[in-house]
Design a protein around this nucleic acid. Structure first.
Length: 275
DNA sequence: TTCAAGATAAACATAC
DNA sequence: AGTATGTTTATCTTGA
């Protein structure tokens, strides 16, 4: 089981570790990866995206160009995270065919809304394009690149019964994306708003006998399940995200980026070895 | 420039 | 009565 982070416990790992562990968890739980593999069969060549909830680097950046893989990237490029988003199919970049059988869920480029700050306060959504360099050690709670519909979908898919009450959806999100533990409470409103408004989710009335708490169970409408899978695989760039393509401005940030890359490659190899 | 999608906030109703 | 849940509307940002 991956990182089970009690919501009340402030994460002490870096943002990238949290992200990798979350992905690792999703792989191990199986159902979601199976869902994604289903989509893989439907899809032709889907881009591979990385779930790296990183804070933006200063200056922001443009959206990555599509379909520009960067094989054979050299270490001197570590200062530039273009490799993350330019290499939309990282598996191809790594030249390992077996890796193509797994498809990580994740955001295009993994950029987040500018949540990077250097103190211990929760990342501020208002800090679009923060002025500080990304530092994985000090920004454990970067906003995940997934839309709320993707988060909800992941939560429901991860449940054995494939249906969850709102509260459990909250809990799943909190466990896997500690960012929300310190985020303003409005995100719960957003979850509910999404459940209500998004036709992909359906309310299921509980049995009277099992009706312990308030509310209903929520499930994915089978009619729209593939849509959600596709959306997850293609996780659009977070609407408010910035891509971090600007080189780091400090030695610390440089080292941090090196860690990001090596951690991710390590994770990727681990994921491949589990296939 | 326009449009669609998504995030966010808020008001309100309903159920427990 | 207070809280959680669910619905709806409005506004804003971003990318296409």
């Amino acid at each position: 089981m991956g990182p089970v982070m009690p919501p009340s416990k402030k994460p002490e790992v870096s943002g990238i570790s949290v992200a990798s562990a979350s992905m690792s968890y999703l792989y191990q739980t199986g159902s979601l990866s199976r869902a994604l593999q289903e989509a893989e069969e439907l899809d032709l060549v889907l881009p591979v995206h990385l779930a790296l909830p990183l804070a933006p680097l200063p200056g922001g950046a443009a959206k990555p160009e599509k379909g520009t893989a960067t094989p054979g990237m050299e270490d001197e490029e570590l200062t530039n995270l273009n490799w993350l988003h330019e290499s939309k199919n990282l598996l191809n970049s790594f030249g390992d065919p077996v890796l193509r059988s797994v498809s990580p869920v994740g955001g295009e480029g993994g950029g987040t809304r500018g949540d990077g700050d250097h103190d211990d306060t929760p990342p501020s959504p208002s800090m679009v394009g923060g002025d500080l360099p990304y530092d994985a050690q000090r920004n454990p709670n970067c906003k995940p690149p997934y839309s709320f519909s993707c988060l909800i979908f992941m939560a429901i898919e991860d449940a054995p019964s494939k249906r969850l009450p709102v509260k459990e959806i909250y809990n799943w999100i909190l466990e896997h994306f500690p960012y929300f533990a310190n985020a303003p409470t409005g995100w719960k409103n957003s979850v509910r708003h999404n459940l209500s408004l998004n036709k992909c989710f359906k309310k299921v009335d509980k049995d009277r006998s099992q009706s312990i708490g308030k509310g209903s169970l929520w499930c994915v409408d089978p009619e729209y399940r593939q849509n959600l899978i596709q959306a997850l695989k293609k996780t659009p760039y977070h609407p408010h995200a910035q891509v971090f393509s600007t080189p780091p401005t400090s030695p610390q940030a440089y080292q941090s980026l090196n860690r990001v890359k090596s951690d991710f490659i390590h994770f990727w190899n681990q994921a491949a070895s589990r296939v």
